[in-house]
Design a protein around this nucleic acid. Structure first.
Lengths: 221, 221
DNA sequence: ATTATCTATAGATCTATAGATAATGC
DNA sequence: ATTATCTATAGATCTATAGATAATGC
C-alpha cells in the first residue's frame, strides 16, 4: 500500500531541504498558494509571481526553494499524492469494514471519493500536469490509482459470496472502472455534461450504486 | 437536431468573410494546422507562429483572417461542432436503425463514438478550451451533447418493449451517462488510468454493452 | 557563517499590429 | 480598387537569475 514516493523524489532536487523553521513555513505557504491558483486557473495560467503574491512572499524566494516552476508542480503533486495515499490507506483498511456488506463498501467508496475529490480540487489538475511532463510522475499517479482500486477490489472480493455474476473478478473490475469514470465526470462536469448532474449527491450515489449492484448480481438487494 | 450555430456565430466576427478563393484555402489550412497542433500540445502550448508555420503561411495572415487567437479557437470549435453535428444527425437517424434491437443500437453507438472520438482528436481539447472561455461556446457544447444523447435516447425508448427495468426512462438515462463516462476515459486514458484500457476495442465494447443491457434488464439477452 | 529574503532586471517568448508588397477579380 | 500576404517589430508577460540585505541558529 506504500506509494513508493521515494523512488520518484529521492534523487531529485526540486525542493531545497529546509535548514530553518522559517523555510518550512515558506514552502508550505508557497505550495498552498500554488494549489489554490492551479485549481482556479490551471497550471499554465498561474504565474510564479501570482503564486508569490498569494503566498505573501517574493519570486526570488520561490526560486530559492524550488528548482523551477516545473519543480514546484512536481513538489506539489508529491505532497498531494502523499495526502491522498494516506487517506486512502486508512479508508480501505479491512478492519474498518468489518461486518459491512458489498453495498456498504461501495456506498462508502462513492461517498469517500466525492468528498476527497472536492477537498483536494488541485489534485486532478496538478497530477495531470505532472504526469504530462514526467514519466516518474505518470508512474506515481498510476500506482496511486492502482492502490485505491486494489484496496476496494480486495474488500469486494472478500465478500464474493454475495456476488452471483458468473465471472466475479471481471464483473468487479468493470464495476470499479465504471464507478471511477462516473466519479470523474461528476467531479469535473466540464469534461462531459451529464444528465445525472442535476441529481443531488444522495440520489446520484443511489443510482450509481444500484447499477453496480445489479451488474454484480447481488444476492441481497 | 439542428445545433443552432447561428446563435453563437452570427453576430460575432472572429473570422473575416472570404472575398477571394485564396482566402478560403488559407483559412482552411490555418484551421487544419491549429486542430493538429492543439490536439498534440494543447491550446496554450501551440503559439500562433507555430500554427502559421504548420499552415505554410505567416502570423500576419492569420491575424488578417482571425480576430485574435481566441477567435481562432472559437472558429475551429465552430467548424468541429458542425462536423460532429452532421455526423451525429446521420448516425441517429431512425431510418438507419430500422429493424435493429437495443443491443444493436448501443453497439453501434459505442462503435461510432470511439471512431469519431479518434477521428477528431482536436474536438475534446478545443471544445473544452472554448467552453472555458465563453458562455456561448459552453451552451453550444451542451446542445451538441444533448443532441447526441437525445438521439440515442429516442432510439432506445422506441424499443422500450425490450426493457424490463421498472423505471425505463431513468434506467436509460443512467446507461447513457455511464456509457458517455466510459467513452471519455477510453478516449483520454490520461484522465484516469483504467484496468479495462488493456482490452481491445471489441472486448471493451462487449463488456460495456453487457453491463448496459444487464442494467436495462433486456428480455432477449 | 549560513540560510533566507527581497528588489530589480535580463532574456526569452508570445500576441498583436504597422506598413510595405503582391495577387485577385469586378 | 480591393483583398491578401509578408516582414519586421512593438509591447506585454513570464521565467529565472544576480546581487544586495536581513534573519537564523550553531
Amino acid at each position: 500500500m506504500d506509494v513508493g514516493r521515494t523512488q520518484w523524489t529521492a534523487d531529485l532536487e526540486w525542493v531545497r531541504t529546509p535548514r530553518q523553521t522559517r523555510s518550512e513555513r515558506t514552502q508550505t505557504a508557497v505550495l498552498d498558494a500554488a494549489a489554490a491558483l492551479f485549481a482556479e486557473r490551471g497550471v499554465d495560467h498561474a504565474s510564479v509571481s501570482d503564486i508569490a503574491a498569494r503566498a505573501g512572499t517574493s519570486v526570488g524566494t520561490i526560486y530559492h526553494h524550488f528548482s523551477d516552476k516545473q519543480g514546484l508542480v512536481f513538489a506539489l503533486f508529491d505532497r498531494l499524492a502523499a495526502e491522498l495515499d494516506a487517506t486512502t490507506a486508512d479508508a480501505v483498511d479491512p478492519a474498518r469494514w468489518h461486518g459491512a456488506g458489498i453495498a456498504d463498501v461501495l456506498r462508502g467508496y462513492l461517498d469517500f471519493a466525492l468528498d476527497v475529490g472536492r477537498t483536494l480540487p488541485a489534485f486532478r489538475i496538478v497530477s495531470r500536469a505532472a504526469a504530462a511532463r514526467d514519466v516518474g510522475a505518470r508512474e506515481l499517479l498510476e500506482k496511486l490509482h492502482r492502490n485505491i482500486d486494489e484496496g476496494v477490489r480486495a474488500l469486494l472480493l472478500a465478500r464474493a459470496a454475495e456476488i452471483t455474476h458468473p465471472a466475479r473478478e471481471l464483473a468487479v473490475d468493470l464495476v470499479l472502472d465504471q464507478i471511477a469514470a462516473m466519479l470523474l465526470v461528476r467531479l469535473e462536469p466540464e469534461l462531459r455534461p451529464s444528465r445525472l448532474a442535476e441529481l443531488d449527491d444522495d440520489a446520484w450515489i443511489d443510482e450509481t450504486l444500484h447499477s453496480a449492484l445489479t451488474h454484480l448480481g447481488l444476492t441481497t438487494d
